[in-house]
Design a binder for these strands. Structure first.
Length: 346
DNA sequence: AATACGGGGGA
DNA sequence: TCCCCAGTATT
């Protein structure tokens, strides 16, 4: 059997039951695809359920506050996805009367929708012949055809795109796209793939040449950069603290945090007080964590200290401590809030 | 052509 | 530690 027909046959037997597989409604497909970008099904699933429950149609999502969307997205990462999700919902609801574009070219124009997502929606919802190319597809194709071109190089993207367009089943692009991704996700896994029960074992170049473990080839990531964060956790006599919105560029845009003092290296209390007192009058300061909390992102390692500052008056307008859970915060801040337990402290 | 952008999980 | 994940936008 051909490569694509074999995958479809495999898929019909082995596919997982997932909520977005029971619909062709573009809103649900789009929502699931945005959530699943660089995110495993297991991690994204509860978020998908929450969004569908909270925003059953594109109109509810469009009418929501961005703050509410970010709060529901909290913990999933890559927050530009949530901001773009909301912006696109507003665009589709208002400008397109709630009707999503019905083809690859127009879908691609939506914020947060790139080549992969446009292909996925176009094929799943409208059966357009548009081959998806995600991490799973790269792996399956590179192994099956024995391609050593790095998948994250410009050349590689070109080569694999051509291969994907060549392999797609033009009679059933939706099934084929689902099939090759599912196959990559649960059988042709990054490590320890189940080759011995693989329907493609006879014709798989990587298996024949014993290259399963070295394919796909990928250009290595650069080392993450170290950063040193000091969060100023104020507690006033009237049980307020200071929390502020992250604006501008960089990570966690539009999420909330305690006032941040970033330093070149890890600092001690003397150094901290020196920098703090150059701005403010006396405070009672204690360090929450004696050892830096290292929050690891894919491109940054954040060495973090939380400084508890008890004070009569806040340096700026405060927020009731009882309300901090309402704000969308990075996981680093969320973990601190849970561990610190303000209620016990005040 | 590179880099920024999160967080969780597997080996 | 390092790699991967239903990638996209910006530089």
């Amino acid at each position: 059997m051909q490569f694509n027909k074999s995958l479809i046959a495999w898929y019909s037997v082995n596919k997982r039951e997932l909520p977005w597989r029971n619909t062709k409604e573009p809103y649900y497909i789009w929502l699931s695809e945005i959530i699943l970008q660089q995110t495993q099904v297991k991690q994204g699933l509860p978020y998908y359920e929450a969004f569908v429950h909270q925003y059953p149609t594109v109109f509810e999502l469009a009418n929501a506050k961005e703050e509410a969307v970010l709060k529901l997205w909290q913990g999933l990462g890559y927050y530009s996805r949530a901001r773009n999700l909301h912006a696109t919902a507003k665009y589709v609801a208002v400008e397109l009367d709630g009707i999503f574009p019905d083809n690859y070219t127009d879908l691609l124009k939506l914020k947060g929708v790139g080549d992969y997502t446009a292909s996925a929606i176009a094929s799943f919802c409208f059966n357009e012949v548009a081959a998806v190319l995600d991490g799973n597809v790269y792996r399956v194709l590179s192994r099956y055809y024995g391609i050593h071109t790095p998948i994250n190089s410009t050349e590689g993207k070109k080569v694999f795109k051509a291969l994907a367009n060549d392999a797609i089943d033009i009679e059933n692009p939706a099934e084929y796209n689902q099939a090759i991704m599912e196959f990559g996700a649960i059988q042709c896994k990054p490590s320890g793939p189940d080759c011995l029960i693989c329907p493609l074992i006879e014709s798989c170049a990587a298996y024949r040449k014993n290259e399963i473990s070295i394919l796909p080839v990928k250009i290595k990531n650069k080392k993450p950069k170290n950063k040193y964060f000091n969060f100023l956790v104020y507690i006033s006599d009237s049980d307020k603290t200071v929390i502020e919105k992250r604006v501008g560029k960089g990570i966690w845009q539009n999420l909330y945090q305690f006032p941040l003092m970033e330093t070149e290296k890890s600092i001690d209390e003397t150094e901290f007080l020196k920098r703090l007192n150059s701005v403010e009058s006396f405070q009672d300061v204690t360090l929450f964590n004696s050892v830096d909390i290292v929050h690891k992102l894919s491109h940054q390692h954040l060495h973090t200290k939380f400084w508890i500052i008890k004070t009569q008056e806040l340096p700026e307008k405060g927020t009731d401590i009882s309300q901090i859970e309402d704000y969308a915060v990075p996981v680093l801040i969320k973990n601190f809030i849970e561990e610190f337990n303000f209620e016990y402290e005040i």
